[in-house]
């Protein structure tokens, strides 16, 4: 697999930023590597699109990993990982409810906190706290390079630090 994935180290977690098409494959790989405890799925509105953040822990050695993937507003579809970790079922429903993210393959994708009749996905940044649309909100441009693009090769004089992966903040 030609990986469209960027790996970095943030604090004590390995963070993978991955193309949505490769998200499911990466999750299957992590499941095979023994990451068995799903902590949460967080949905985020990035301003240019929606982001799914999956937090996992491996119980045997307490390694933590975070998987992120970004999808555009027009087609916010991500593969569901409910069959790998049943514990994310409600988190995926919550992300659908709050942000409008749709999880392909989810067994029961309906609203969880709000009522079924609602059309609002309130955590999107285009709405204010009360659920009113903000009049002057415009989506930002898709980032370039793309979020999962690996960082450019280090300059020759900084080559000594490149092995650490960088303490990004």
């Amino acid at each position: 697999m030609e990986a469209r994935v960027k790996q970095e180290r943030l604090f004590d977690e390995d963070v993978y930023t991955v193309h949505p098409d490769d998200y499911r494959a990466l999750c299957e790989r992590l499941k095979a590597e023994g990451y068995d405890f799903p902590r949460a799925i967080s949905g985020l509105d990035m301003g240019y699109g929606l982001r799914v953040t999956l937090h996992l822990t491996r119980m045997s050695d307490l390694a933590k990993v975070t998987v992120r993937t970004d999808v555009p507003y027009e087609n916010p579809v991500v593969a569901s990982v409910t069959d790998l970790w049943p514990g994310v079922e409600w988190y995926e429903r919550e992300a659908y409810d709050m942000l409008g993210l749709r999880f392909r393959g989810h067994p029961d994708l309906r609203r969880i906190l709000l009522e079924d009749e609602w059309e609002l996905h309130p955590l999107q940044k285009r709405y204010d706290t009360g659920g009113y649309p903000l009049p002057d909100w415009q989506p930002a441009a898709w980032p370039d390079p793309e979020p999962w693009a690996p960082p450019p090769p280090p300059e020759p004089e900084e080559a000594g630090e490149a092995g650490e992966g960088g303490e990004a903040s």
Binding site: R39, A40, S42, G43, L44, D45, P86, G87, E89, W90
Partner: peptide, 13 residues
């Protein structure tokens, strides 16, 4: 963004 991971939320599943 502040995302809370509730313990009881997971337990109730």
């Amino acid at each position: 963004r502040v995302k809370h991971r509730g313990a009881a939320f997971s337990n109730l599943q």
